[in-house]
Design a binder for these strands. Structure first.
Lengths: 162, 162
DNA sequence: CGCTAACTGTACTTTTCTGTCAACTAAAAT
DNA sequence: ATTTTAGTTGACAGAAAAGTACAGTTAGCG
């Protein structure tokens, strides 16, 4: 179980854009700030644009901005766009037979496990928005040695009820 | 964020072994039950053996058995052996500078996010053992439309306090 | 012993994911 | 209109993961 490069770098690029609200940031600028090549950033931005997470304009004065305000953008959606979900319905199809059989066989203990883990991750992600990331709310929650979720719930900017 | 093939198939093989307590199961038998090639199962079993999750004996009458009773084997440990942890300390090293700088920069919001997710996954996995997987406790927890963790806590075989 | 069944280890091939490149299109400035 | 800046696209090369092949070792059995 691991994060993909696309998730890591895509989220970073999105956060760089989110830091300058209202402005359009160019690929070159994002690349410079993150220490990535422009070509790679361009590829990542394409994914984010297709997921409607950013809006782009071309030509001079072009660039990218968030499609919505940071407090409305769930990190869960961002990661799902960049790297997909942990568990999807077609997961079983690649090896196991029909879903009915699967449900009663040993393999499906594993399917349930994957569902459980996906559920946990979604739960943890549900209340975290780009704004939380920008404000350092997550970092603080660790500094206080409490669970991230609990700390977020008490922070100055309460997350929406997912 | 996704599961590796090694996690999926390695855990399946381990569960096949766990189904026949006391016996030694051969690679051929495991491969047959899971529909995998013997060569691939052999590779997976090596990983499990090096993690001390199974014991092997060679020669005729050889095979594999669990190194410990199913109720003592945490699925979290199994997955960590097969695919590593979601977040590790050296994670930042591959791109960011020192940990101090990292803590106060934007990238570290991401580091905190990865830590949060790792924490959630570990929490979900902490109480799940091979025995739970075998007994169908996870499947039942989904059938009752409750969170897996809650359902497990109430099941006939209470998980150890992680 | 010698044969056979079965695990062990290394090296190899194939596939998938990362990251790059070059050619293209759009918009603004002059 | 031309030039320049900047996003768009698809094809490609390198790296990592997945899966295979094969030669070697161990242990039972006759």
């Amino acid at each position: 179980m691991r994060f993909t490069a696309q998730e890591e770098y895509g989220l970073r690029c999105l956060l760089q854009i989110a830091r300058e609200p209202g402005e359009f940031m160019t690929i070159t600028e994002i690349a410079k700030r993150e220490g990535l090549t422009s070509a790679y950033v361009a590829k990542l931005m394409r994914v984010l644009r297709k997921a409607d997470l950013v809006k782009s304009i071309r030509g001079q004065k072009g660039g990218f901005r968030l499609a919505a305000r940071p407090e409305l953008v769930s990190v869960g959606d961002v990661l799902a766009s960049l790297g997909g979900r942990l568990y999807t319905k077609d997961f079983c199809g690649r090896y196991t037979g029909t879903e009915q059989i699967c449900t009663h066989s040993l393999e499906c203990s594993i399917r349930s496990l994957w569902m459980t883990l996906d559920h946990s991750v979604q739960r943890a992600l549900s209340g975290i928005t780009l704004k939380h990331m920008l404000s350092g709310a997550l970092i603080e929650s660790w500094a206080h040695a409490a669970s991230a979720q609990v700390a977020l719930d008490r922070s100055e900017t309460p997350p929406p009820a997912a």
